[in-house]
């Protein structure tokens, strides 16, 4: 399985994503891909890592979405390639219109970094099949602008189509409907504020994120009829 981890100026979880993918996805070949690249052909999973792309100076993710690589992401997403946006990556995906909604300043106005308990609201996706529906997992957050917003009509749609994948058990940022992560209609683009790549190591005493990566591996194998 070929994995691309995008690197924008200001990305800072790119290496963490590389390490997590290498560690959890058997046989993964992981490349860091620079923001000026204009093709992502041949990749099976595209990860957009956390950080502060372009300093997040206008709005989080607002400038990154115009990087050449984002056109390639849109194309790959349309072709069904798995795309996982984490934290700043989620913000970029919403700015790029690949996921609905927007991420705004936390209601408490402070950056928050701590462990967070998530409900797996939809365990029937390529990213979450390894979890049980309704299972509560511990995936840490670290963000100042993770307050998910969308209009009521969009929210109804998200609910109706089962696009809400993770919700917070204790909403840390004011997100509507406690949303921590959403998936696109096609089911191949997931954006989430919490950091699964920070929860894959027993020495850091949290391994709840491993199954997110192994779920993707399983989905990819099934798609390509590879027997694991």
């Amino acid at each position: 399985m070929k994995v691309a981890v995008l690197v924008f100026p200001g990305s800072n979880c790119d290496w963490d994503c590389v390490h997590a993918a290498e560690q959890t996805i058997e046989g993964a070949v992981v490349d860091r891909v620079w923001h000026t690249t204009d093709t992502l052909e041949g990749y099976d999973l595209i990860m957009i890592p956390g950080g502060f792309s372009y300093g997040d100076y206008l709005r989080s993710g607002a400038i990154a979405r115009f990087a050449p690589v984002m056109q390639a992401v849109a194309k790959a997403a349309a072709e069904g390639v798995y795309v996982l946006g984490i934290c700043n990556g989620f913000q970029i995906l919403t700015e790029a219109g690949l996921l609905p909604g927007a991420l705004r300043r936390n209601t408490g106005l402070k950056f928050r970094c701590h462990s967070s308990q998530l409900h797996v609201a939809n365990a029937d996706t390529a990213f979450t099949s390894g979890y049980a529906a309704g299972e509560v997992i511990d995936i840490p957050i670290a963000h100042g602008e993770g307050n998910y917003y969308c209009e009521d009509a969009v929210l109804e749609q998200l609910k109706a189509r089962n696009q809400i994948v993770f919700t917070y058990t204790d909403n840390p940022n004011g997100s509507v409907a406690d949303i921590a992560g959403v998936i696109n209609e096609q089911g191949n683009v997931l954006g989430m504020m919490p950091h699964p790549e920070r929860a894959v190591n027993s020495l850091l005493r949290n391994e709840d994120g491993i199954r997110l990566f192994t779920s993707i591996m399983k989905a990819w194998r099934e798609r390509h009829a590879i027997v694991g």
Partner: peptide, 26 residues
């Protein structure tokens, strides 16, 4: 320290709040 990202780098084995912080050498 909840305002500080103390986990980025995924090497922070002992977070703020104990006697000393411990960071893994990958």
């Amino acid at each position: 320290y909840s305002q500080y990202d103390h986990m980025v780098g995924t090497n922070t084995s002992v977070s703020p709040g104990s006697d000393a912080a411990v960071v893994l050498v990958r």
